[in-house]
Design a protein around this nucleic acid. Structure first.
Lengths: 331, 331
DNA sequence: CTGAAAGCGCTTACAG
DNA sequence: CTGAAAGCGCTTACAG
């Protein structure tokens, strides 16, 4: 069942059927209606693959993240999907699991499928040369987000993590916390920026980050970081967790150790996931707006697809602090 | 840059290049190597769209869920993606947000892109006629999961929710709970099956489900269900939440009301998400294995793609109870 | 406003 | 073991 069949059944040429399908206004209303009726009647289904091949697009866009179980990426993916569906694009999604080899294989599949563009959260080991080989030299429009790749120039959407750290530090210092630990999260630009911001903010008040324990982005990382902290001696006044994900784990860990978060030690995270506000005590957190990151990235990518010669652009979103009981109920 | 260019540069015909690309063993080793060298040298990239069109496949498979922020679907999607990547398929993913119109539009896009198969979690309003029109009549291999559609025959992978409810009921009764409330979750087959199982299991011990409050699958649903329960009078001995998602919200809600989960009232959920074990008290939960659902669904779909005349099959996975402190620390 | 013809980049028999 | 030719289902100039 092809446009040829539709053409035959409605007494026009395939070219005219094609014009109708693409809603070109040039077709006479009567012809148009006749063709549409036939399509309905014989149950013809447009083959976008063929259309795309001829017009050299694919109407698909790739999105690679490390792990969709991370609520930040889940939210971001949903935001991206809404925009793409509106424009008729299909979303090809892949999970690198933070593994460069997996990421590279996915990029390979996407490039062979001739995606019209790619959103990429690079894995921790991704280097400029990999991206250059897969995306740059093929001139495939792409936008990185959340993580940058050293020495690789591309459009980027991210959060100002230094500022996020500073916002939290200011708040903690103002609330009278004198000692602060930074827990969890893998070594990454995001982490070191948040730490840098924390340090800068605390320094203004003559304070420092007393403990800094690197682990992983997972909840297990929060648990183990807390265990290390507890083993080291007296608790700090406040714990800044690398993310809400980590903070929620720390919260449980504190309770398991007989300590009440918010009372025995203040606790805050980054991202402001929906769960943060639903905790008891509600968790103070710095919002990093995955939905806005997704929307901005979509805007940049679509722009780049329409105008391939555009210079790479960087969008830095400003974080915002949500103050809640977990850092304010302590005496 | 096409196989023609490769052919010209290596002194063979396009047909031979095609054979090399598809790793057909028929090609002479020397020829093969020469072609591969040229490909490497001139940086040719295979155009799978063209290949697929000719061989009438697309090497893409669609997956539609309601909301990827739901950890159950996140886990499932990751399991599916691993299997598909191994087989060279690209995963086209869409989120219906439980809206039938959105779901239908996505199916439309996927069908036009000629996906080789579809995994679908139907929206709450999806009817047999919709699926018949989009998938059945086009004979597109597909597998439903987690929710069935009344009157629609298709392969299905799900959890035995009646048994899940019964497992939990048995445990609660054995632990000496006399009154049980079932909280949260939207009206659905999964919910009514869990409730049916709970009732059946409690009945054996002469007990009933004392309260049954329907809300939504979201955490907010848990909060509001708990509020309604608290307004109704004395607490039951145990709360069975529709899901862990809901249970975690109930846990926070209890604390906010000055009640300690596990001590003042027992609490359990369904799904056994990773967070459940990390809570304090650790949350009793009935595991529903999203990863296994994803893997089984992949197996069924790939089978169906290879053998289109296969009869639809149903796979019911057995749930398992993880007993933890939230239902055992009460006197 | 509509049609005939060429072409997108591959694969598929078939011939040799 | 390799090549010439046709074809997958569309779109794209171009002509009328």
């Amino acid at each position: 069942m092809t446009i040829k069949d539709v053409a035959a059944a409605s007494g026009v040429s395939p070219a005219t059927v094609s014009l109708v399908l693409r809603e070109e206004p040039v077709v006479a209303a009567a012809t148009r209606q006749r063709v549409l009726d036939v399509i309905d009647q014989i149950g013809y289904v447009y083959d976008r693959r063929a259309a795309n091949m001829r017009s050299n697009r694919s109407m698909t866009i790739g999105l690679i993240v490390t792990d969709i179980r991370n609520p930040f990426f889940a939210e971001l993916s949903m935001a991206v999907e809404v925009v793409l569906q509106e424009r008729g694009y299909a979303l090809i999604q892949g999970y690198s699991r933070d593994d460069r080899a997996r990421e590279d294989r996915m990029l390979g599949v996407m490039v062979e499928q001739r995606v019209d563009g790619v959103f990429l959260l690079p894995s921790k080991d991704t280097a400029a040369e990999h991206l250059q080989a897969r995306l740059g030299s093929a001139r495939i429009p792409h936008v990185l987000f959340a993580r940058r790749v050293a020495g690789y120039e591309a459009s980027y959407v991210g959060i100002n993590n230094v500022r996020a750290g500073r916002l939290l530090a200011e708040h903690l210092a103002t609330e009278g916390h004198r000692t602060v630990a930074f827990l969890g999260g893998p070594r990454s630009d995001a982490r070191s920026d948040r730490l840098r911001g924390l340090r800068a903010g605390l320094k203004k008040h003559g304070l420092t980050v007393d403990e800094n324990i690197v682990t992983s982005a997972l909840r297990e990382g929060g648990i183990s970081a807390l265990e290390q902290l507890l083993a080291k001696g007296p608790l700090p006044d406040a714990i800044a967790a690398y993310s809400d994900n980590v903070a929620l784990a720390v919260m449980s860990g504190l309770r398991a150790a007989g300590l009440e978060p918010g009372r025995d030690v203040s606790l805050a995270g980054f991202d402001d996931v929906p769960e943060a506000a639903l905790q008891h005590p509600a968790l103070t957190s710095v919002a990093t707006y995955p939905e806005r990151v997704g929307t901005e990235a979509s805007r940049l990518l679509l722009e780049q697809i329409e105008q391939p010669d555009l210079e790479p652009r960087t969008v830095m979103l400003e974080p915002a602090l949500s103050v809640r009981a977990s850092t304010t109920t302590r005496a």
